[in-house]
Design a protein around this nucleic acid. Structure first.
Lengths: 341, 341
DNA sequence: TTGTACGCGTTATCAG
DNA sequence: CTGATAACGCGTACAA
């Protein structure tokens, strides 16, 4: 347990025969240092395996060099992509990423704020549905903690954000089904607390309306973005008379569940039932048949959002909100409806 | 951008009309403070929304209150469970979790060490395969950074660890197939750099040997724990003449791939081919048919490992290594082989 | 039971 | 271009 004490800036200064401040200048790439001195200092740093003490830096600069990532237990692949993108941008920076999954953003805003304050974060990245939570953002502004929003769907302009166009994406997915000839299309909505659920429904309805198809309320079922909730919703849809010839699920987990539900009813996918997902998560390639789905560039979004956050932390002006493109991936879970229907 | 300056311990002291040291005592629950004073201080803290400055605390105590989690891009569900368990244990503690996915532990030990040092971690949790990396552990000991190991398979006793019995688990899975009547069983190994791959192979061979079955080398294929690698491996196995009647994949992602490969060959699962996975990840319930698999208590393991780490950080003696139980979950991907074979 | 002086490692300020 | 000195917010050692 003899924790070997780390070399400090003073040790380096002594070895390089300069003052501590000069070492500090070298460490922070400040100007006004001779090349000769610079190299001497650098050698001493290497010899002593010197690493600046982040706590001390943080103390004087009142920075923790910690950035939080707030999200709410969505699917594992979503979380991992989120983290990947955020970390990718952080590579080479001094900041570290602290993960902060919360049970429910609504669980008590002030508790979350207390969490953020006690964690001494410099800034936070807000993933849905936290990114749509007005109260949370208000509190963050009050305590002066910068944030960036990933996939917000409402209250735009309340902070830098990166998103995709959920309405357009859902519209595209629905059009794909319409073009295949489907007329009776079931929808499995996502978690109502995620505003994306509504946006996607709107897009779907727009596409159907444009094709002159009315979406009966009975064809709209609600899920929670989980496999199990999707399974229940799909069963209800398939019990209708007549059942839909296609189901548009608002994420891949629920779409996978729809396939399972179809199998329970003895229906073949895509022959008897077409299924469309959303997200292009791992699951979409693992199920059979592989899902037609919308690719949502989660990793890119997290990367860009983190980038915006770093800009803000450097005191640079906030850039404009960013919208990233989506993509309809047509795989094998969709086909024209059977002739007779 | 007017970052409101946070209240300090001095502000609280002034308001409560005591010295800063007394406030410090209250904050840290030290003895020798009157109840009356205590409550007065607590009120002041609340009024000022005081939170101790972690950087300052860390500076004097030479602690960062940061714990790292090192892992190497395994399946998303594994990562998420790992994080969940670790965070669960951290709930209510002052420590925060910093995620540190690395490309490859072997990529250069010293780079990883540099990463850990510059991140100023108090301790690290090592997930496989980092948990089996002798060089890394040696370096960690040298710089005096405590660590705990999750699922190590060799070099036991080199540091506190939590594991399951991979050999026994694989044995159990293989016995299940043997009991169903399978004699020609294919194996898809995991990433060779994960020692668990070998352990699981050993268990499999032991079970087969006990049943008097020899495992021909052609029946052993290697994958990388990913769906795609599993797909390639399964295709090779199914191209054998005769093909195996069962496939034992060393994780669920590869097992799911085996199901897909079977479908490509026009084989039904489990009628024509039984498939067993490993991990009980989300995927196992999402594919069709749901996978017979081994439940690996990843979340519990992470929880326990974090617990051990906290003990070490408190200076308490290291507890004994922990071994957690596994469980064979029989679902619908396994059945007796067809009579004719 | 409570308070005072000092130091943790770093950077900002301002002199040299 | 370089260095001395004073903070940053808190805990430790020692007094009172």
């Amino acid at each position: 347990m003899t924790r070997p004490k780390r070399a400090t800036i003073v040790d380096v200064a002594r070895m390089a025969e300069v003052s501590a401040k000069t070492v500090s200048r070298v460490v922070n790439n400040e100007p006004h240092v001779t090349e000769a001195v610079k190299t001497r200092v650098r050698e001493a740093m290497r010899a002593l395996r010197y690493h600046p003490n982040v706590a001390a830096q943080g103390l004087v600069r009142s920075r923790s060099y910690l950035i939080g990532l707030v999200y709410e237990k969505p699917s594992p692949s979503y979380v991992v992509e989120l983290q990947k993108g955020a970390l990718e941008r952080l590579h080479g920076e001094r900041f570290r990423l602290v993960v902060l999954p919360v049970e429910s953003v609504t669980e008590r805003e002030d508790e979350i704020i207390a969490l953020l304050r006690s964690a001494a974060l410099d800034a936070v990245l807000l993933a849905p549905p936290a990114s749509d939570h007005a109260g949370l953002m208000k509190e963050l502004r009050e305590v002066g903690m910068p944030f960036a929003r990933i996939s917000p769907t409402r209250l735009l302009g309340q902070g830098p954000s990166v998103a995709m166009d959920d309405v357009a994406a859902a519209q595209e997915a629905a059009e794909h089904l319409v073009n295949l000839g489907h007329k009776r299309i079931g929808v499995i909505k996502g978690d109502p607390s995620h505003a994306a659920s509504d946006a996607r429904l709107v897009g779907t309805m727009q596409a159907l309306a444009k094709a002159g198809i009315t979406l009966h309320p009975e064809l709209i079922e609600s899920g929670l973005f989980t496999f199990d909730s999707g399974l229940a919703a799909a069963r209800r849809l398939l019990a209708l008379d007549p059942p839909p010839t296609a189901i548009l699920a608002q994420n891949d987990d629920m779409a996978a569940a729809a396939i399972t539900a179809a199998r329970e009813c003895g229906l073949l996918v895509p022959e008897d039932l077409s299924v469309v997902g959303f997200d292009d998560s791992d699951i979409s390639r693992v199920v059979w048949p592989p899902l037609t789905t919308i690719r949502q560039p989660v990793e890119d979004m997290a990367y860009r959002a983190m980038d915006m956050l770093l800009h803000v932390l450097r005191g640079e002006p906030e850039g404009a909100d960013v919208q990233l493109g989506h993509e309809l991936l047509i795989r094998r879970s969709t086909a024209p409806p059977k002739a007779g229907l």
